[in-house]
Simulated scan of single mutants.
Amino acid sequence: MKIILIGYMGSGKSTIGKNVSKMLNFDFIDLDDYIQEKEQLTIPQIFDRKGEIYFRKKEHVYLKEVLERTDVVVSLGGGTPCYGSNMAAVLSAKDAHSVYLKSSIPNLVQRLLPERLGRPLIAHITTEEDLTEFVGKHLFERSYYYSQCTKTLVTDGKTVSELTEEIVRLF
Rank of each mutant, 00 (worst) to 15 (best):
E52D: 12
T159L: 06
T80Y: 01
D95F: 03
I16F: 04
T42M: 03
L67W: 10
R69D: 10
K151N: 10
D33G: 05
T155I: 01
F28V: 11
V72Q: 03
T159D: 03
G7Q: 02
D156S: 04
M1K: 14
V160K: 07
L170S: 06
R116T: 00
T70N: 15
K18L: 08
S92K: 12
K18G: 07
H60S: 15
Q40L: 06
V160N: 11
T15G: 06
S147Q: 15
I122E: 04
L67H: 13
G78I: 02
V73G: 00
K58R: 15
G78D: 05
V74E: 03
G10C: 03
R69E: 14
L117C: 07
S21E: 11
E141L: 11
E39M: 12
V74C: 08
K137Y: 07
A89L: 07
V168R: 09
T15A: 11
I6N: 00
H124Y: 07
F47S: 03
L101E: 04
L91P: 00
C149T: 14
L108P: 01
I29Y: 10
D48Y: 11
H138C: 07
L24S: 12
I105P: 01
I125L: 08
Y145A: 13
Y62H: 15
I125G: 09
F140A: 13
Q36R: 10
